[in-house]
Deep mutational scan, measured.
Amino acid sequence: MALNTPQITPTKKITVRAIGEELPRGDYQRCPQCDMLFSLPEINSHQSAYCPRCQAKIRDGRDWSLTRLAAMAFTMLLLMPFAWGEPLLHIWLLGIRIDANVMQGIWQMTKQGDAITGSMVFFCVIGAPLILVTSIAYLWFGNRLGMNLRPVLLMLERLKEWVMLDIYLVGIGVASIKVQDYAHIQAGVGLFSFVALVILTTVTLSHLNVEELWERFYPQRPATRRDEKLRVCLGCHFTGYPDQRGRCPRCHIPLRLRRRHSLQKCWAALLASIVLLLPANLLPISIIYLNGGRQEDTILSGIMSLASSNIAVAGIVFIASILVPFTKVIVMFTLLLSIHFKCQQGLRTRILLLRMVTWIGRWSMLDLFVISLTMSLINRDQILAFTMGPAAFYFGAAVILTILAVEWLDSRLLWDAHESGNARFDD
Rank of each mutant, 00 (worst) to 15 (best):
A2M: 11
A2Y: 13
T5H: 08
Q7H: 10
T9A: 14
P10S: 13
P10I: 07
T15P: 12
T15R: 11
R17N: 10
I19T: 07
R25A: 08
G26S: 09
C31D: 01
Q33Y: 13
C34Q: 00
D35A: 08
L37A: 11
L37P: 13
L40M: 12
H46Y: 11
S48W: 15
A49E: 03
P52I: 11
A56K: 13
A56N: 15
R59C: 09
G61V: 10
R62V: 07
S65K: 12
T67L: 14
A71H: 03
L78E: 02
L78A: 08
M80N: 05
G85S: 07
I91F: 03
I96S: 08
R97E: 03
D99V: 08
N101D: 10
M109T: 07
K111A: 08
G113C: 10
A115E: 14
T117K: 04
T117Q: 01
S119D: 04
M120F: 12
F122N: 04
F123M: 02
P129C: 06
I131E: 00
L132F: 12
T134M: 12
T134N: 13
L139R: 00
G142Y: 01
L145D: 00
L145P: 01
N148M: 03
R150I: 05
L154P: 03
R158F: 12
L159D: 03
D166K: 15
Y168M: 13
V170S: 15
V170W: 14
V174E: 00
I177H: 04
Q180T: 15
Q180Y: 07
H184P: 09
A187Y: 10
V189L: 15
F192T: 13
S193W: 02
F194D: 14
F194T: 11
F194P: 01
A196K: 03
V198F: 15
T202W: 15
V203N: 08
V203S: 12
L205Y: 15
S206F: 15
E212N: 13
E215T: 09
R216W: 10
P222S: 09
R225E: 13
R225H: 06
L230C: 05
C233T: 02
H237C: 05
G240L: 10
Q244A: 07
G246I: 04
C248K: 00
C251P: 00
R256N: 03
R259D: 12
R259L: 11
L263E: 06
L263H: 06
K265Q: 07
A269F: 02
A272H: 01
I274K: 11
V275L: 07
L278F: 12
A280P: 03
N281H: 06
L282K: 11
L282Y: 08
Y289P: 01
E296A: 12
S308R: 15
I311D: 04
I316Q: 02
F318S: 10
S321G: 02
F326C: 09
T327W: 12
I330F: 14
V331C: 12
V331D: 01
V331N: 11
T334G: 09
I339S: 08
Q344I: 12
Q344Y: 12
Q344H: 12
G346E: 14
G346P: 14
L352M: 13
I360W: 10
R362M: 02
W363Y: 12
M365T: 03
S372G: 12
L377P: 01
L377A: 12
I378M: 03
R380P: 00
R380F: 09
M388L: 05
A392G: 07
A392D: 06
F393M: 10
A397Y: 03
I400S: 05
L401H: 11
L401R: 00
L401C: 12
A405G: 08
A405D: 04
W408R: 02
W408K: 04
L409W: 02
S411M: 09
L414F: 08
A417W: 11
N422F: 14
A423E: 14
F425K: 15
